[in-house]
Amino acid sequence: MPQSPDIPPGTLHMLILKTLQAGPLHGYAIAQRIHLISEDVLQVEEGSLYPALQRILVKGWAAAEWTQSETGRRVRVYKITPAGRKQLGAEISEFDRVMKAVYKVIETA
C-alpha cells in the first residue's frame, strides 16, 4: 500500500470543518469522509485528528454531544457552530489565495 501523503500543514481544521458543514459526524466518520471524498488520497491519522478536534472545541468552532448511532452505539458527534462556519469561510479563501499564488509560481517558473 502506497504511503498516503501528509495533509498540508494548517489545512486539517479546514477539512474537518468542511466535512462537518454537511451535518454532524463522529470522529471516525470524519476521517472516513475525508478519505472517501479525497478518493483515498488523504488519510487523517488519529494522532492528529483528535488533538485537532479538541482544538476546534476550544476555539468554539464546533460543539460536541453524545448521541445514539444508527447501530445503537453511544457516539460523540461534532456539530459546526456559526463561528465555525465563519472560520471555514475565512480559511477556504485564505487557502485559495495561497494555492493560486503557488500555482502561479509553478507555472511560470
Partner: peptide, 28 residues
Amino acid sequence: EEMCFHAEMAGRARFGNFTLLGEDSRSQ
C-alpha cells in the same frame, strides 16, 4: 471512549501511543 470507538470501527484493538495522543489532545 471516543477513541476506543474509533479503534473498533477501524478494526484495530487500540491505536498507536494512546498516552501521547491523550496528552496531545489535552494540551489543546
